[in-house]
């Protein structure tokens, strides 16, 4: 059990938890949180797999991709939150149309 494998496993579990929350919960803010956790899980798997170089320096290419991914994730989150606020302003409920309760 190397640390890299341990963290890859944690990343997979985070991905699954995030997907579970994304499907199950209706409130859009909770969906956005779920997407963020799901994304963190993916990043964790990528960086963990890059750390399998033994004593040498880890692979820098996945690191660079994850850094780009983190910045894209935060800008996507900002856009998603703006969309959520707009849905809330239009309908009074921050849920998707099919989940709306009348």
């Amino acid at each position: 059990m190397t640390p890299a494998f341990l963290y890859a496993l944690v990343g997979i579990v985070l991905f699954s938890i995030g997907l579970y929350g994304l499907i199950l919960y209706k409130h859009l803010l909770r969906k956005i949180l779920a997407i963020n956790i799901l994304g963190s899980g993916v990043f964790l798997v990528m960086v963990a797999l890059a750390a399998r170089t033994g004593d040498a320096v880890p692979d820098a290419v996945p690191h660079a991709m994850v850094i780009t991914g983190i910045v894209v994730a935060v800008s996507a989150t900002a856009l998603a939150l703006a969309l959520m606020l707009r849905v809330d302003a239009e309908t009074g409920q921050a849920v998707l149309p099919e989940d709306r309760e009348e």
Binding site: T2, F5, A8, L9, I12, V13, F15, S16, L19, V45, L49, A50, R52, T53, G54, A56, V57, P58, D59, A60, V61, P62
Partner: peptide, 21 residues
Amino acid sequence: LLAASLAYAVWSLPTQALGLS
């Protein structure tokens, strides 16, 4: 099931891989 199959996929990867480093 998804997590288990993904974990199996990661487990079956070689423990040493230099990648592009």
